[in-house]
């Protein structure tokens, strides 16, 4: 316990400091005299590149995994509200990670992609790569979806198609050095929702969401309409499972300083499965800030 005490900064540097990372209770470490010669600490996590890799997961295995997760949470919950909030938490921990990851990927200039696309077979992967770039610029392009995209659509997971064949690029392990300008942080509600509707949805489900609607009645309500609802499509009559995707949206927006609550609503008209509507209710402060900052 004694080494966990908060030590004043006047204390001598610990001798074992060079082997450990940042310690909250000790405070900032000074760089050591022979730091440059200190052994390189190998780490799979940090040497892995953040670039898109074409990785797909079969929808079936994803559905079985999701099913197990649901029943696990369901069995450990005492009430339905507890079940929903747990599912929401699972989702939000994904959402807040996606916020950083997808933004930095969107920052990588698109000519890096076009360079790699010369390696790709002409008709197979190009459309989805252009789809990708398009969705970064926040335009949904249902027209460009061709067969390849549709077959991709049955797969959940990392769904981009940028095979960076460049070995040098991969070994450099750094994406940031390629970036001249980081993508702008989204400051307005509509910007971040567009990003959600386009890029995030493409990343998660292979295509942009079907619609992004602003409520005409209430200022702070927006809706994302998803006809396919990939994850919960096999689950009948149970909206509460959609709280997982709600959690992803909520975690994403809340972490980006747009605090909100997201709830799922089924879009069934005349018994036809019209998918799920995710209703996003922003907190008051978001609208106040928007008015103060960008109001006319």
């Amino acid at each position: 316990m004694t080494d966990k005490l908060i030590l004043p900064s006047t204390s001598e540097e610990q001798s074992n400091v060079s082997t450990t990372g940042y310690e909250y209770s000790i405070g900032p470490k000074q760089s050591l005299p022979n730091e440059a010669n200190s052994p390189y600490i190998p780490s799979k996590l940090y040497s892995e590149s953040l670039v898109y890799k074409k990785q797909q997961v079969a929808l079936s295995s994803m559905a079985f995994l999701f099913k197990e997760m649901i029943s696990q949470i369901y069995n450990n919950s005492k009430s339905s509200s507890e079940f929903e909030s747990k599912l929401l938490n699972y989702g939000s921990s994904i959402g807040l990670r996606l916020l950083e990851l997808l933004n930095i990927r969107a920052s990588v200039p698109s000519n890096t992609y076009s360079r790699s696309s010369t390696f790709l077979s002409s008709n197979a992967s190009n459309p989805s790569s252009s789809n990708n770039v398009n969705s970064i610029s926040n335009t949904s392009n249902p027209n460009s979806t061709n067969l390849n995209d549709i077959s991709n659509a049955t797969n959940v997971g990392i769904n981009s198609s940028t095979n960076i064949n460049d070995k040098n690029y991969e070994s450099s392990e750094s994406l940031a050095s390629l970036v001249s300008h980081m993508r702008c942080r989204d400051l307005k509600i509509i910007d971040i929702l567009q990003f959600m509707h386009g890029t995030v949805w493409t990343y998660l489900f292979g295509s942009p969401s079907n619609d992004l609607v602003k409520s005409s009645e209430r200022e702070n309500e927006y809706m994302i309409v998803d006809h396919e609802h990939m994850l919960t499509q096999f689950i009948s009559n149970n909206n509460s499972c959609d709280y997982f995707v709600c959690g992803i949206i909520q975690g994403f927006l809340t972490k980006a300083d747009f605090p909100c609550t997201v709830t799922p609503h089924s879009n069934n008209e005349n018994g036809i499965d019209g998918g799920v509507i995710y209703l996003i209710k922003f907190d008051k402060q978001v609208l106040e800030r928007e008015n103060l900052r960008y109001g006319s």
Binding site: T19, T20, G21, Y22, E23, Y24, K29, I41, P42, S43, L45, Y46, E48, L50, S93, L96, R97, E100, L101, K255
Partner: peptide, 18 residues
């Protein structure tokens, strides 16, 4: 952040990061 064992908002104690 991609590390599933890291809770966002807690101190980063990884020596590799450091």
């Amino acid at each position: 952040l991609m590390n599933p064992f890291y809770t966002p908002g807690t101190p980063i104690s990884s020596s590799a990061f450091d």
